[in-house]
Design a protein around this nucleic acid. Structure first.
Lengths: 352, 352
DNA sequence: CTGAAAGCGCTTACAG
DNA sequence: CTGAAAGCGCTTACAG
């Protein structure tokens, strides 16, 4: 590792001058010729600043703490971490990740991150929920991902759940479905209620009034299968919006039992079908993709904007795949992320 | 953050003395009374050493670099990262995670980690494979997880794939199955061949000779379903060992088509069924759990043993759930991890 | 037994 | 325009 000292020695100037130049604070302070020389030698030697040494003076480490739960037990965590790391790496940060799933208490892990001088925290949940923020976090800049705090005071990034329900149901309507069922969850998730709201609004906007028998919430395995069987037998839906993969899989099984073919006899839109599911059954399933990557990405972008509030970068770099969208400024990072519909295969509605 | 300087001021001794005491190098060098005083004050003030400042002198940061692929696209990464972090946190390390899935080149990310002074790397793959190690890694201690390098020279942690095949098939035999099929993958994974070896060995040990028609390798969706249908119709297996979840799901569908009930008419053992799968269909599926958590855990343990080779901790702390096993010494971290059978429900074999 | 000093790699007033 | 100096929090010979 070459150091400034080495560069100073080779160029015959002082370390101070090297520092000035390599931090681009040389304008009007260092003779241009000297500056050029220093830069050239630095480049030749492949100089890389030591961020830890720098942090000793500046108390900015350019390390971010990413705290997540359930990393091992949900397939969602990976996308969020990836998005967060992409953003961090583009903005010149690095991420210390930690999760509160193991033995160690969350506070111990947070304390460890603090010792390493993180500049701020992302606190990530894996299901959109109201949460209380550990007080050990609040003294540094921080952002919630896939959660809002109970007092709605912390910056947070969440999916637009209502829009998910609206778009999914709208998609079924567009495909020609007129008897559209909602298969939701019994678990008390924020998303559950909000997606239903969007679903009902889409039905209303389309002039469809189907009655409450078309919305069921199920959980468990056998019980869920039985409930869906009953729904199919009594209501004869031709379109289904499934709250999540578990529901979609149960629907697939019930459909098979009734000899109904997905994409022919009935249409299905689900949310966030996992990879293994996609590989086998769900090429037939149009799905709404939960924006885990984007939540991670924007959470870190937002966090960096808070950290560098004095002089933030001009604009946020867009996440990959979004390059055509106008670059949001740091101050206008979206709080609710719009979700995309992924067409695995055209939804087709046939008669029942 | 209290510093040694502050403690020195309050106790009226020099910083050197404080350092000696708080690093437990005071025996015979500092008057016991002084030492006690220093420790008391340090505790009162909640002193925490600044590892970054320390690293400037020692060039040991107690930061580990964890490099993984496909974190967002496989559900396996989470378990591995969790295991790695648990081990790191127990051993007093912290983990900088990075993945080579996004835009930035792996080398850039590795360079970033180096700048932050990581003491070593874990390089994690998500499917057991032979891999070549980026040369930018080899100058520091490093360990491969779920992979071996092509020259078999780097320390690595992998599952015992042969044992997986053996145990799974053994389980079906124990349940009374006598016509046991292997449903494998067409993809050229190390695990594919090795699990088949174990499968065949188990059959052989049981005196079962079933012929090659009982082993099929499938991929795709429709093609796979058709092949499994043919297998069922021509060979009438009463037990199935499925290479992975995708195969198990396809088998479930085919079984449903044939009116066969899992756990009654046929028995199934699969490998590593994902959570969403487990929630719905697979309570019926006995599965072999891939040891992702353990691989992460042991990879970090091994890495730390390499880093601290001069004076390693006496023994490795066991991963949770393994507390009854004897503690391996650092030098004897297992290279092949034994996998557990998870009984979701008794496998039962009925007539076909 | 204890402390002054040098140094890790960097930044930042300040003096010239 | 440039450099000497102090300092961030710590460790480590070395002198006493």
């Amino acid at each position: 590792m070459t150091t400034m000292k080495e560069i100073a020695r080779r160029t015959g100037v002082s370390i101070s001058t090297v520092s000035l130049v390599l931090n681009d604070r040389d304008a009007g302070r260092v003779k241009p010729k000297t500056a050029v020389h220093v830069r050239r030698i630095a480049k030749e030697l492949g100089y890389q600043p030591n961020p830890l040494a720098r942090s000793l003076r500046t108390s900015k480490t350019r390390i971010l703490g990413f705290i997540s739960e359930e990393i091992a037990t949900t397939p969602y965590a990976g996308g969020m971490i990836l998005g967060a790391q992409d953003a961090a790496s583009r903005l010149g940060y690095v991420m210390l990740t930690v999760n509160t799933e193991g033995i160690a208490s969350a506070d111990d892990e947070i304390a460890a991150l603090r010792r390493y001088g993180v500049d701020g925290f992302v606190y990530a949940k894996m299901f959109n929920c109201l949460t209380s923020v550990p007080s050990s976090l609040t003294s540094l800049p921080f952002v919630l991902a896939d959660a809002q705090d109970e007092e709605h005071r912390s910056p947070s990034i969440t999916p637009d759940e209502i829009q998910i329900g609206y778009d999914a149901t709208r998609r079924l309507i567009t495909a020609g479905c007129s008897r559209i069922a909602y298969i939701g969850s019994l678990d008390p998730m924020l998303a559950q209620g909000q997606r239903l709201v969007g679903h009902l609004q889409a039905l209303k906007d389309a002039g469809l009034d189907l009655g409450p028998g078309m919305q069921i919430n199920v959980s468990g395995n056998e019980a869920a299968l039985a409930a869906i069987d009953r729904l199919i037998e009594s209501e004869h839906p031709d379109g289904f919006f499934c709250f999540n993969d578990a529901r979609a899989m149960q629907l697939y099984l019930c459909a098979a039992r009734h000899g109904l073919h997905i994409g022919e006899d009935i249409s299905v839109v689900g949310v966030d079908n996992h990879r293994v599911f996609a590989e086998t059954l769900s090429p037939r399933l149009t799905s709404v993709e939960l924006p885990h990557y984007e939540m991670g990405f924007w959470a870190v972008s937002k966090l960096v904007s808070l950290i560098e509030r004095q002089n933030p970068p001009k604009a946020v770099l867009p996440p990959p795949g979004r390059d055509t969208a106008p670059l949001p400024s740091f101050e206008s990072v979206p709080a609710k992320i719009h979700c995309r519909l992924i067409e695995k295969e055209s939804v087709q509605s046939g008669g029942f």
